[in-house]
Design a protein around this nucleic acid. Sequence first.
DNA 1: GTCTATATCAAGATAGAC
DNA 2: GTCTATCTTGATATAGAC
Lengths: 199, 199
Amino acid sequence: MNYATAQSEKQGVCLTRKKEIDRDRVLDAAEGVILESGGRTFTLDAVAKRAGISKGGLVYTFPTKDALVRAALEREVTRFQKAVRRRLGDRPLEPFELVLAHIDEALDEDAATTQKAAFLVTALVHAPDMMEPARRYYRALLDPLLSESGAAHEVRHALLAVEGIFLLRGLGFVEVSAAEHKSVLLHAREIVARVLSER
Amino acid sequence: MNYATAQSEKQGVCLTRKKEIDRDRVLDAAEGVILESGGRTFTLDAVAKRAGISKGGLVYTFPTKDALVRAALEREVTRFQKAVRRRLGDRPLEPFELVLAHIDEALDEDAATTQKAAFLVTALVHAPDMMEPARRYYRALLDPLLSESGAAHEVRHALLAVEGIFLLRGLGFVEVSAAEHKSVLLHAREIVARVLSER
DNA sequence: GTCTATATCAAGATAGAC
DNA sequence: GTCTATCTTGATATAGAC
């Protein structure tokens, strides 16, 4: 059957055959549009144009706008999550160490990446029920800290400060230089590191 | 002239004449729609219906959607700002005390009000350049803390944690009970109060 | 000053050619 | 699998009656 033939052709490495739409390239375009326009002109046309494909091709790859937003958010969250896990090596996911790794990863990303992730928040407005990936991530990070123990208080506070500057800046509520942002993260890191060393 | 007559009739207390559209009622409706729908069905029709007026009447009162969003945000920010100022009485706007008053006011508001304000963030996506009121407020609050002095570090950190839980919760990234939210704010308040008393 | 009815336009989604 | 062209919807904004 030529259907099966087409399938196998698709899965192999094709240098000569018709190009397939690169999902990552599309997601980059989507994030780029959101980042630059702040969400107002976050339209399928804009994404397609930026990705250098037609709207039909875009819609074929991501059947709905929700699917596009979900994929963009999911990619961003899992990328960050994997980077955090990598820092922990094969150690178990101990709550305080998880927070420390989270902060360290945030410190390592440059301002542009931070901004990029923050503006994904904007996308949520277009598809508010698509934030499950982000919710899962934050739950793992924050839930263990919502108990009432003293040290958890401190770590929770540090984590919230990190997210606070991240969101305030990303949403455009405050203008904060990269240096000031970094200074906040370093302070938070100090606190968590101290708590960890004192145990 | 009957034009002047109509004007004076409008300005006086009219019990019998045709009612004038209550701007606050409209803004309440706008916030209600945003709050319940998360911004997706934040449409003029929805606002008009909720306010119990026609779309024409709505558009007459707020000529554009941007004007509506701006007014809603401005009202919310100035309301909060005035409440904070009231706490300070006639004292000058000393940075640390300002932060303390900000936290105290946030503590006094119930969860619903907090959520309401947080979801106004959603409205910003519809009119991103309308956030000047919020930016002004945050600038006054945060800028004095961005210096490098040690005490400012601590106060800044506390403030950011407060805003962090506020935004994470308001945007739906984490599910936090009212009690947990309050606990975070109380911890932050403790820190700022201690810094103030130690000076 | 407020309402009804409508023009206008843009965006998400579809159908069919290649 | 991707593209062009089109359909459909729904939302902003306007025009004109009351």
